[in-house]
Design a protein around this nucleic acid. Structure first.
Lengths: 335, 335
DNA sequence: CTGTTAGCGCATTCAT
DNA sequence: ATGAATGCGCTAACAG
């Protein structure tokens, strides 16, 4: 391994001089600078970033920890984070938390390999987060309500989103509305469900537990849930599905078995993933501010890093996206 | 910042003992181990991973460099890489190469921050790659034909894939076949086109340049391309689209303007992204071995790292996925 | 089983 | 403008 020492030797200068030359510090004459650069080139010298970071005790990079690096949902979030990070001259690396305590993510959290991090992964424990956060290592939490020193949560108003979705259905004349939810440990899913409940109550519609079915936020989960709903003797006229992926799965199932969307059953999703715009019919859904969330998270990290004051927590709002999978019940009856 | 020294002091042991205890080396008595651990706990000690890496000159992580962290295509690839990496006890971090020479990716390439890397990004120059590769830093190149020492390319047989797709269309009786390609600098796209050409020639079908239109591999590009094709007075009976995303866009356009797929026009795509299975009608396409590619890349990295011999390069094959968007021209004429 | 010590590769202060 | 010397936090060889 060729080090800066080797370069210095070859260029007949001291290490410090080599370092200056390599890093563009202007203390060194053009003459020697070129000598050093050439020596480095000849030896194919690569600097060891860690050593540099160790010395400077600054990594100039932030990490984004996701429970799963793949999935359509994350694309926009990542873009948001990235855009702001590069603005600040920081690097972004993404890693996943599969494996929990032993994951790559854990290493970044506990070993000071980055200057700060943004977490959207529910298999990282609150305890780990609390222990890791410090003035020099701020953490932004996405979709997790945990206020601590040096830790700021950004959540989206899932409950209100669920409320809006359900209210919209009710306004369209539906009062037999099913709910396809997420896994029990999903805080998001739970909040969306509460919004659903609230809308129901407000309109004096009884909640029917047989019409609450739980999926796992995947396309397949949506199919299965749809199947369960379709199998019952009385069928709801509309479904609020807790995320778009499941909604797409449900739509597919209904199409397969000849139940028409929206003529026979209306569907509203949640998230507004890219894909939802391209289905036939186009999915009516609730906009989740993914990009904004990423960008804001990035912003907050840098404020924290700069020692500025920030809000204790942030809440982002949702928005109804009306497309083609919800039909007015009157239209339906006439049809 | 609390260091291992502080911990040692508080526990009344030497640094080495603290290090052993912290790292679970069994040279130390249970008694002292607990003492050290407790001291660490009390001081909220976090180890500096860099310092450790520096000392060990091993990072135990590999990087995956993508030109864009988002996009449906990458999900499966990432899974493949990841699965193998964790098998080997390695961590995986993903970073993107947006920004070219100054990107995060570049840092990882040139600053030895990881033990090896897998690159699927065409804005990283060959030169950079050549300079970075070394026995201690193997590089696996995806979809880029560049054989060098310590650098092994994995490519998919795009040409043959294009050939298969086109031949399939011809066998179904089509001889007016348009091609929607990718950007000019896409090697993949170019190869797929060559396969198309070869199939045409083999069946003595003249290539018509007006039926070659170029998109940018996005959904919108596909829509636009479809529009251009539809606008011509004579219309092809089939289209080979160089990737699924564009095929989806094209299908959407055709549906919008009342051109039926496949009754009026057959479409075959390329990649077999998850989504293509969920369209109506379901997209006929060519399978791109994404997961396998990732897994293989990972494998190769570890072989290289272990100093084993590997093939100079790998070629992965494609497979026709027959679904619903290609119709036999006879059926069509009868219809 | 525990302590002393020598670097890992680099940036940087203080002389010169 | 340049060089010698120091130490960042950690691991591991060696000595006790």
């Amino acid at each position: 391994m060729v080090t800066i020492k080797d370069v210095a030797k070859r260029a007949n200068v001291a290490v410090s001089t080599a370092s200056y030359a390599l890093n563009g510090v202007k203390k060194v004459s053009e003459e020697t600078r070129r000598k050093v650069l050439q020596a480095a080139e000849e030896l194919n010298y690569r600097k060891n970033g860690f050593a540099a970071d160790l010395k400077k005790s600054k990594t100039q990079t932030i990490a984004l920890i996701l429970s799963d690096l793949s999935g359509p949902f994350y694309s926009e979030l990542i873009r948001g984070v990235q855009d702001i990070a590069v603005d600040h001259g920081y690097d972004l690396i993404a890693c996943n938390s599969l494996g929990g305590q032993n994951s790559t993510a854990a290493k970044f959290l506990t070993e000071r390999r980055v200057d700060g991090c943004i977490i959207l992964a529910h298999n990282i424990t609150n305890e780990m987060i609390e222990k890791s956060a410090s003035p020099a290592f701020p953490i932004v939490l996405l979709d997790r309500q945990l206020e601590r020193a040096h830790t700021v949560p950004i959540i989206v108003d899932n409950k209100n989103g669920g409320y809006k979705a359900t209210t919209f259905l009710i306004q369209k004349g539906h009062n037999n509305i099913a709910f396809i939810g997420g896994p029990a440990d999903s805080h998001d899913g739970q909040m969306r469900f509460e919004g659903y409940l609230e809308a129901l109550q407000e309109h004096h519609i009884d909640f029917q537990s047989r019409w609450k079915v739980t999926g796992n936020f995947t396309r397949e989960g949506g199919e299965l849930a749809a199947k369960i709903i379709a199998a019952q003797d009385e069928r709801p006229t509309a479904i609020f599905v807790a995320n778009d992926e499941m909604a797409l799965g449900a739509m597919e199932y209904f199409q397969k078995v000849g139940i028409r969307v929206p003529e026979d059953i209306s569907i509203i999703g949640f998230d507004n993933i890219l894909e939802s715009k391209y289905t036939a019919p186009k999915l009516t859904t609730v906009q989740h501010p993914k990009y904004e969330m990423g960008a804001l998270a990035s912003h907050v990290i840098f404020q924290l890093l700069d020692g500025e004051e920030t809000e204790k927590s942030f809440t982002l709002h949702t928005e109804l996206i009306m497309r083609e999978t919800v039909i007015d019940i009157m239209t339906k009856l006439r049809g």
